[in-house]
């Protein structure tokens, strides 16, 4: 279980810097927002040209965020607009796209470098093209604050 830190305001990072890099732009990590109850990560996925009818996507239920300094893990608690394994979303054409969001336990309200890990060693998950992002920089000074009424 991740360490509890209460964040009063929701902080938003658009297109955060990813030091660890990632081959290609699919999915594209668009936005991370950290609130007191969850961390939300928004992705955009454009169907691939190489697959017949664009291929498919899904997310592993054991996906987590990892603080690279403390190695604390933050579990995924909800997936919106992307099916969780073993379900999958099959595209109908090579030009389809999908916007989806994943919710995790709340990150602390401090400067962080995190990894986004979709486990690939699971025997239940046979796809090598997992959505992993390494060394995502979340500096509080770069964050946008959400406006709440």
């Amino acid at each position: 279980m991740a360490k509890k830190n209460i964040v009063q305001k929701r902080m938003i990072w658009q297109k955060p810097e990813i030091d660890g890099g990632r081959i290609g732009n699919n999915p594209l990590l668009l936005r991370i927002s950290v609130g007191e109850r969850d961390t939300k990560i928004d992705f955009g996925y454009s169907a691939y040209n190489i697959y017949i009818k664009g291929g498919w996507i899904r997310i592993h239920p054991d996906t987590y965020l990892e603080d690279t300094k403390t190695m604390l893990r933050y579990k995924m608690i909800k997936a919106v607009d992307i099916p969780i394994y073993p379900e999958k979303l099959e595209f109908k054409t090579k030009t389809d796209w999908q916007y989806f969001s994943l919710y995790f336990e709340p990150l602390p309200h401090i400067d962080l470098i995190i990894n986004f890990i979709e486990p690939d060693k699971s025997i239940h998950f046979d796809n090598g093209n997992n959505f992993n992002f390494y060394k995502i920089k979340l500096n509080t000074i770069d964050a946008l604050d959400e406006y709440k009424y």
């Binding site: 938003i12 936005r31 916007y99």
Partner: peptide
């Protein structure tokens, strides 16, 4: 998609 108001 998914607009969020900002304090900015």
């Amino acid at each position: 998609y998914d607009p969020v108001l900002l304090k900015r």
